[in-house]
């Protein structure tokens, strides 16, 4: 190999710089950070529309399906696998229990660097406080 004495140190420096974030976070302990989405404490709000394992993997497609179902098909109730029927509504069903998206959705999304645009239009209840909750719809 030509220019061995230049290439190898340069490669080492490059690799060191490129992997710097990993070293840095390992040393500072950030790499061990685990996101902790806050679950509702209320007993009545313990059960989600689907089992935790399903939601964890499929919440994105479930929400997509819900969106399609309401807007395009006009179907507003969801038959869950536990034989219960739920109103399809991000606002009234999901956010009824997980009232604050910053303590729930954002926990993992921020950690994973995921951005979603739900809240450009939809409104989660906590968003409107402080101040009197805006008028209740029908």
């Amino acid at each position: 190999m030509y220019d061995k004495s230049k290439i190898i140190p340069a490669l080492v420096i490059f690799l060191g710089l490129a992997t710097y974030p990993i070293w840095h976070n390992t040393v500072s302990g950030k790499a061990r950070y685990v996101p902790k989405p806050e679950l509702p404490t209320d007993k009545a709000k313990k059960e989600c529309v689907e089992p935790k394992t399903f939601i964890r993997v499929n919440h994105k497609t479930l929400l997509e399906d819900w969106k399609f179902s309401v807007v395009r098909n006009g179907i507003r109730t969801y038959q869950a696998s536990n034989k219960k029927a739920y109103t399809i509504s991000l606002n009234r069903t999901c956010m009824n229990c997980h009232t604050d998206k910053t303590k729930f959705c954002d926990q993992c999304h921020t950690y994973m660097g995921v951005t979603n645009k739900c809240w450009d239009c939809h409104i989660y209840p906590k968003q409107l406080s402080p101040g009197p909750l805006a008028m209740r719809g029908p």
Binding site: D120, C121, A134
Partner: peptide
């Protein structure tokens, strides 16, 4: 003026 949380706003 006053957001109705029951209906989405638009972007």
């Amino acid at each position: 003026k006053k957001i109705n949380p029951e209906y989405p706003t638009r972007t």
